[in-house]
């Protein structure tokens, strides 16, 4: 579904992402892990056209998307994303926030409302729908990020650390939610720090280290990979 070919992003000499290639298959959950500063969010931003690639190409459903200039074009192409640091529209209600997402696929307010209700229901935010987004708890803000992105009706969803900052109970709640989204037919590419949930969720995992691809494979393959243990897990000991 998505194919990245030798993508590079250099910031004034710093190689944030260097020569990384990978593919995402339709219907899978691909995990992206790596120590801080490995370039995970940079890869998301490259896919989402937040900044141009230094070199390399990204294809989505066979079409080149790395030449798109604006993040909105990428969303229109069918890729939704959430932000690591959540960005709610604080002065709007939860419903209105999600409606903004839904307007990606409709011009009608009533249709957008309907779609937003569905997306909020999916993530369990319905009871908060009339609350101002700025008054939400951390965990609800994360849900709002997901609901908004879902409402744009993406084929591929990029989830950037939606579990960070949540307590264990909340993490337990969000895992089935992500699985449900995938079962509804949306492919998922996710960054997460919590290894246990990553292992439980991902079909495959991509390991990044210093901007380069270190390993790729099933959770079992990755955790038994010596380079990964040394560079990533080893670093924590």
């Amino acid at each position: 579904m998505l194919e990245a070919k030798k993508i590079c992003k250099h910031f004034e000499g710093l190689k944030a992402v260097n020569d990384v290639s990978f593919t995402i298959e339709k219907g899978e959950i691909l995990g992206l892990i790596g120590p801080n500063g490995a370039g995970k969010t940079t890869i998301f931003n490259m896919i989402a056209a937040v900044f141009p690639l230094t070199s390399g190409e990204i294809y989505f459903n066979g079409k080149l998307i790395s030449n798109l200039k604006k993040p909105s074009d990428v969303c229109k192409a069918g890729i939704g994303r959430t932000f690591q640091v959540v960005k709610p529209f604080g002065g709007m209600t939860v419903l209105e926030n999600v409606m903004v997402g839904a307007f990606n696929v409709t011009n009608s307010v009533s249709e957008a409302t309907e779609k937003a209700m569905k997306a909020m229901d999916q993530v369990g935010l319905l009871r908060r729908k009339d609350m101002l987004a700025k008054n939400l708890t951390v965990s609800d803000r994360k849900r709002l990020e997901v609901a908004r992105a879902l409402a744009t009706e993406p084929q591929l969803l990029l989830l950037d650390e939606v579990m960070a900052g949540l307590n264990p109970t909340e993490v337990e709640e969000i895992i089935p939610l992500i699985r449900k989204i995938r079962d509804d037919g949306i492919t998922i590419f996710m960054i997460e720090h919590i290894m246990a949930s990553m292992m439980a969720l991902s079909d495959r995992i991509l390991v990044l280290h210093h901007g380069e691809k270190l390993a790729e494979g099933t959770p079992a393959e990755v955790t038994s990979n010596e380079k990964v243990i040394e560079a990533y897990l080893g670093g924590k000991h």
């Binding site: 989402a48 937040v50 604006k70 993040p71 909105s72 969303c75 229109k76 939704g80 994303r81 932000f83 960005k87 709610p88 529209f89 604080g90 002065g91 709007m92 903004v100 997402g101 307007f103 990606n104 908004r148 992105a149 744009t152």
Partner: peptide, 11 residues
């Protein structure tokens, strides 16, 4: 309210 989030939502 938020430029980045708006763009990400297709605006």
């Amino acid at each position: 309210e938020d430029h980045d989030a708006s763009e990400a939502l297709g605006i």
